Computed example of a mutant assay.
Amino acid sequence: MEEKTNLMNFCLKDMENYFLSIDEKPFRAKQVFKWLHQKAVVDFDQMSDLSKGLREKLKQYAKISIPKVVFDKPSVDGTRKWLIEVKGGNCIETVYIPEGSRGTLCISSQIGCTLNCSFCSTGKQGFNRNLSVAEIIGQVWTAVRRLSQQEGVHDRMVTNVVMMGMGEPLMNFDHVVKAMNIMMDDYAYGLSKRRVTLSTSGVVPRIYDLLEQSDVSLAVSLHAPTDALRDQLVPINKKYNLDQLMEVCKLYAEKGPHKEITFEYTLMDQVNDSLEQAEALVDLLRQKQVPSKLNLIPFNPYPGTPYKKPSNNRIHRFQQYLMEQGFVATIRKTRGDDIDAACGQLVGTVQDRTKRQMRYQKTLSE
């Protein structure tokens, strides 16, 4: 028997094409789209504005599959982490961070990560596969529904989404772009392009593609002001160096929604946190003329890592120099570290196809 079509994989245009393919009017797509994403209804029989015949047809040929939540873990600071099981027995992690009227959802794009940044615990888990559109947008669906249930209201509490969880989003380009389009669709979650951010380690060709196919906000995991150090921390820099990265970032800033790039810079003690490196960072951004703001992230330790969090003095000295030079530089407050939900700590459960996880565990035991 042919497998049923999962409607969670469809953006609105795909949904309209699907309804045409089953000899139904395309306007039905908007109805189902709203039931699915705005009202969180996954039972066709409850979609009351559809005819009985259409509901029966959908039950015969289509399905709505939502990823399963394995556990829902709150932090003392209000952060929540969901471990979500996806096809194949793997698990991914999704994190919700509330702050004032803002609620930021950090979602995953891959099971594990294709890259292997030396300081990131997700990378040590290896890689299994890319997530489907349904598995990406399913994280948003799950968070919105559970948060609404928790508060006893239906109003959306997810105000911002960042593609900053497990995985490198640009290595799963097509599925990520389609999922972000659903997030921004007025018939789904209606998020502004300013409130959807893709974070990348610097897959330069795909940033050019993103510029052509989407206009979400861009954040770049920089972490080093020179190629020599970035080659060690972010290995993809060996393929796409800082000159190439800064060139595409400048272009994206000129055409993107924010007119600037957010550079994420994880501060590691005695590695990239010296005053000399702050000066090199300023020189880089000025020389390349990239409109930017800096998000400084104190390193979050995990078992086996050789890196350490800098002292508060070193962190604030780094920030102060950047600000004295006219840059906006904020220090990201560590949230959810008691539930391993802080930046760089997401690991999930990955059936690693790369054997990277096995090699890492071997080094820990030696």
Rank of each mutant, 00 (worst) to 15 (best):
K4A: 08
T5R: 07
K13Q: 11
L20Q: 14
I22K: 00
K34N: 08
M47V: 12
S48G: 04
L54N: 09
L58K: 05
P74M: 02
V86C: 05
G88R: 09
C120D: 12
S121W: 05
T122C: 02
K124Q: 14
R129T: 12
L131M: 02
A134Y: 05
E135I: 05
A143H: 07
H154E: 15
R156Y: 05
V158E: 09
M163H: 04
M166A: 06
K178F: 02
Y187S: 14
S192F: 07
P205G: 03
P205W: 02
T226F: 03
D227K: 01
L233D: 01
V234F: 10
V234M: 11
L242F: 08
Y252N: 07
K259D: 12
F263G: 02
N272A: 08
E276M: 08
Q277W: 01
A280D: 15
L281I: 14
R286L: 13
Q287V: 00
Q287A: 10
F299S: 10
N300W: 09
T305Q: 10
Y307S: 05
Q319V: 00
Q320E: 15
A329T: 02
G336P: 11
T349D: 13
V350L: 15
Q351R: 10
K355S: 14
M358V: 13
R359F: 07
T363I: 11
